[in-house]
Every structure is written in C-alpha cells, then in structure tokens.
Design a binder for these strands. Sequence first.
DNA 1: TTGTAGGCGTTATCAG
DNA 2: CTGATAACGCCTACAA
Lengths: 344, 344
Amino acid sequence: MVGIRQIAERAEVSTATVNRVIRGNGPVSPERRKRVLAAIAELDYVPNAAARALTRGRSNLLGLFVPDIANPFYAQVAKGLEDRAAEDGFRCVISSSDFDPARELELMTMYRDGTLAGLAISPLGSAADLGLQKQGARVPHVFIDRRADGSAAPLVGTSNRATAREAVSSLLEQGHRRIAMISGPRNFETAAQRIAGYQDALRRYGAPVEPGLVLQGYIGERGGREAMEAVLDQEPRPTAVFSFNNLLTIGALAAVRARGVRMPDELSLVTFDDMSLFAYVDPPITAIAQPSYDIGRAAADLLVRRLEGDERATGDITLPARLIGRGSTAPPAPAGRPAPAPPG
Amino acid sequence: MVGIRQIAERAEVSTATVNRVIRGNGPVSPERRKRVLAAIAELDYVPNAAARALTRGRSNLLGLFVPDIANPFYAQVAKGLEDRAAEDGFRCVISSSDFDPARELELMTMYRDGTLAGLAISPLGSAADLGLQKQGARVPHVFIDRRADGSAAPLVGTSNRATAREAVSSLLEQGHRRIAMISGPRNFETAAQRIAGYQDALRRYGAPVEPGLVLQGYIGERGGREAMEAVLDQEPRPTAVFSFNNLLTIGALAAVRARGVRMPDELSLVTFDDMSLFAYVDPPITAIAQPSYDIGRAAADLLVRRLEGDERATGDITLPARLIGRGSTAPPAPAGRPAPAPPG
DNA sequence: TTGTAGGCGTTATCAG
DNA sequence: CTGATAACGCCTACAA
C-alpha cells in the first residue's frame, strides 16, 4: 500500500509537507509542491479514508436511509442530496430498510459507529428505537418526509395538508361527494397530515366525513390492493379515491382491474407522489408531485451547514408540492350537479 | 466520545480483554465478560468504524454503484446484495451516477480510498477510466449486468442473448416479420448481446435483418422516445418492436401515445426488464424479468468469499431471465399468415 | 486467562 | 516555509 510516507520519501520532503499540498492549506514552496504532486501522480496515491476519518474525527460520508429504494421519490431526493453534498466535499450513500424495522435498526449502527458524518432519514421506527435521542446523537441528522417520534431534529418535507386539501377539493369541484381515502399507517406524521387535508376539503364543501371512508393501507402494493377492495365493497360505493402514495396506488390499480371497474367513469383517483409511468397508465393517473430533488438538496444543506459549525441550520423546511391533472379524475358518472362553491 | 479504554476502565480489565469480548474470539473468564458487557451497555459503547477499518486494513462496507437508482432492477439487486452481505457481517451502501460518467468517476474514489471493502458495479465507463485495472485494484469488485472494457473481474448477469432470442421469436411466431429493435448504447456489452439474440431469431425465421431496423437509443426516456419516433417513421413501418430496457420503453410509450398509434393492433412491443406498473399500462407491457434479487445475492457472494480469502470465487455467473407475456404483443393487424416453423 | 505495548495512515501542533 | 512528533481508537503479537 502506498501511503503518505512513500510520497514524502519520493518527493524528498516530510509527510507534513505532503499533507499540506494534499489539503491545500499550509504554505508550500512551488518547487516542493511540484515534486509532491509528481510523486502522487507517479505512485497513484489516494489518501486512506479510514486514517483520515480517524484523525479528523469524522468521515466525509453522508447517508440517506429510506424505507424503499425502489420508490422514485427517493431517487430524486438522493440526487439532490448528492449534488448539494458534493459542493462541500461530502459523498453520499443510500441504504434501504425495505420497510423492515429490524433492518432499519441494523443500518443505524452506521450512524452510531461514525461511518457516516451525517444522516438524512425517512424513518420507520421511533427516535428512541433508532438511537436518535438527543443525548445519544453521534452525528447530525435530518428527517425526510416524516419525523421519528420523540426527536427534535429538523424535518424537510412538503405541504402535506394543504396539498391534500387541494387535491380533494378538485374532486369535490368536479361533483364528487362520497370520497374515500386510502391512507398510510396512522403513526406516520404524513398520513395524519394528509388525512387532515382530506377532511378539511370535505368539510369545506359539506361532503360526508365518515371514519369508514378512510382505509388504512399497510405500506406496499398489497396494502393498497386490499384497501381499494374494501373501498369497492362499500355501499354506497365512493365515486372517488384519494391515495396516500404511489406504492399504495399501484396496488389499488390492481384491485380496480381485478374488479373490472372503469376509471374514471365509475371511479376517480388522485394520488400523492408522481411516477413517470403514471402518464401512460390506463387512464393516466392524476398525481401530486413532490419537489423531491429540492427536498434532498435542502436536507444536505442542513447537514453540511451543521457539520461546518453553523448552529442556525436547524428549522423545519416545507417545500410546496403540485397537483398534476391527468385522466383518472372526471365528474362522477350520473353527471351530478356541480358542487356548491365553497363558503366565503 | 466513549472508547474501548473507558470500557476497560469501568469494567476494571484491560483493553485487550474488552476487545476479546467484543470480537468474541479470545478466551475470557465468564465473570470478566459479564463486567465488560455491563460496561458496554451502560456507556452505550459502539466501536469506532474508522479505527477498526484502519487496524484491520479494510472496512466492512460493500458498495453498489449503479447508473440509475430509480430503476427498480437495481433496487432488487441491492436487496439481494444486502441479504447475502449481512450473512458475513458486511453492510451495503448504494450510490448512483445518474448516467453521468464524471459522477461515476467521482464515486470511484470511495473504491480507491478504502471506504469500501468490495464493490459491485454496473459501469458506464471503461475499466481504465475507473481505475479498475488489475494492478490498481485496491478492493475486490464484480460487475453487475455488464463488464467495463478491459477488466477481467467476474460478471454477474443474465442470459441476454438467449432471452432476447426467445422474446423476438415469440413475436415472429405471432406472425410479425418486420421487427425493429430499440437498442442501448453499442458499447454496452448487454446491448451487443441483445442485438445478437434479436438477429438470431430473425435469421432463424427468415425475417429481414436490416441494420436500419436497429435504432440506438441513448439510455434514458428521451432516447427511447426518439428511437420510437424513428421506428414509426419508417416505411414500411415495423409491426413490432423489441426494446432494450424499461427506461427506453417508458420513452417509447410516450412516442406511441403522441402519434396515436394503437397497441397492440398497429404495433406490438416487448421489452427487457419488468416493472410492476407495466401490468397496468394500456396495454399491459410484455416484458422480460431478470432475476435481479439473485443477481445481487450472487454478486455479494463472490465479493464476500473473495474478502475471506476464497481464491476460487472468480467465474462469471449467468442467471436465467423469463418472458412475461402481457397485452402489448399480438399478431400483426392484417392477420398475416403464421410464420414458417423454424428449420430443424 | 490476562495485560502491555506498538502500530495502522493521516493530521495537526509546535518548534525551527 | 519546513519537519519532527504526538495523537486518533482499535487490534494483536507477545509476554506474563
């Protein structure tokens, strides 16, 4: 292995000088710098990351822990995170728990053993489980999308309630009255917020707010399928559905197909989270696109600034989402009268 | 920071003893072990990863470098990799280059500086660019899906040629004669193999093998869209298309929609790589599913075995893919005569 | 079965 | 501007 000493030897300088040219900080005479650079190139030297992390007290790796790496939402978050992190010399790595809390717990040891200098996480478990309590916090962390119970670290996410309200309002304006929601797990902060937005809209338009209209879907395609089956079994059947996220929607689509329900004639559908394929589904799915890239950037920004000593890098950040209208939403079949305008 | 010395102090033993109980190797009296364990629990001690990597000479991190983290193919590969790696105490991290060779190059420093103990990579660039030449190899690596030019490291992939042949044969058997292919970049080994399989099938059934029928799509939705537009402009227009991968297919779908071409009546489509949403597209897309989870497992197996000194962990591994028939393929419109049976 | 001590490669301090 | 040198936290001979 070629180390800093070999470089020093070959360039006929001390290791301190080699280090100065590598880090680009201290003063080095042009001539010596040249010799060092030459030696580095000739020997193809790369500083050892472990040794560096040990002396510096931290690595240069930022982690992104997500529940589902296949969700394109996180792919964009990752890209934003990487772009911003690179500006300050940090690298990013992603790990997925695949919705398995035990696996997520395992991943947390990378957080606790110093492998990571900072962590952006969309948590499954609680802060206590994950070792994210204030005292135990080894490295700075920020939450993406939802916060772990019991933590005070910053959250970067989107305007869940307002956007859910907007999406459901658009359904109401098209004349729907009986609107179901396929929700995510109740303990997800985002689920609570999206349910609140859904209810806001219903109330505003005087539509029924029945607990039975909110179905809980365990995150995953299967959960979405089961929830949609339950919706289709309801009497009277809702004419529209608002879905918690893209994964549940894929499952919901399976149920719709299996039952031979025609969209949007018999059922309208709006979902949180967009996917490029949604535009090509039959019918194209109306969806809410989150600013995922910017969420990633904002998270990295918070992390990097904290790592560089900026104590102010601490507040929550909420970025706006937008509704993309497509073919899966239309007025209900027996052309209902348009809904009354909202009061006020 | 609480280190091994604090534990030793509190448990009233030496650091060597602490180390023995942590690693679980050397002999330690039950009573002392108990004291050490208690101290570790009380102080919430986690060994520092950097220090450990430094003394042991390598980290316990395996990397997966992919061109596109949003592709569900890699999500499954990652899962397989993690499962197998965990069996031997290695963690996995993923990084994406987003099809940017410069970014990929950047990532390679994690490989060269020892951050990673092993690397599974689906390369964009050549072995020389990436620093994967035999001499320079700091860390064992395996290729996923395709090999970088100029490397001899093992490749874990699928039977590209045979499966492409099978997919195109199924088209020919339905009566198609003029079949286009939307290919990936020519310098991708996988593209060459899939083109070969496509040509195998055409020749076998005596269908036209014209260079103009193979369109090159720069990887990405846009490339797929442009390639499909070129296909649709051809005179006479092909009645079927074989697409290199899921990403290109999404773009191709956009072109089909934009032109108002009806599938499968006017055009049949088969693609390499499956996605769960393909089942809900209009029409559902016939696709080739790779054994992605197993590819990930096999890659990790190779890496882990090499890291543990098994010199035999070295050959290429080819896992079979399977064709999933869906609605995007059907006999050509003016019901052509069935193709002649293959000779022999 | 236990402890001491030296070293892993880099960084940073502190004289010169 | 330059060069010794002492950490960083853990691991592992080797000695007891």
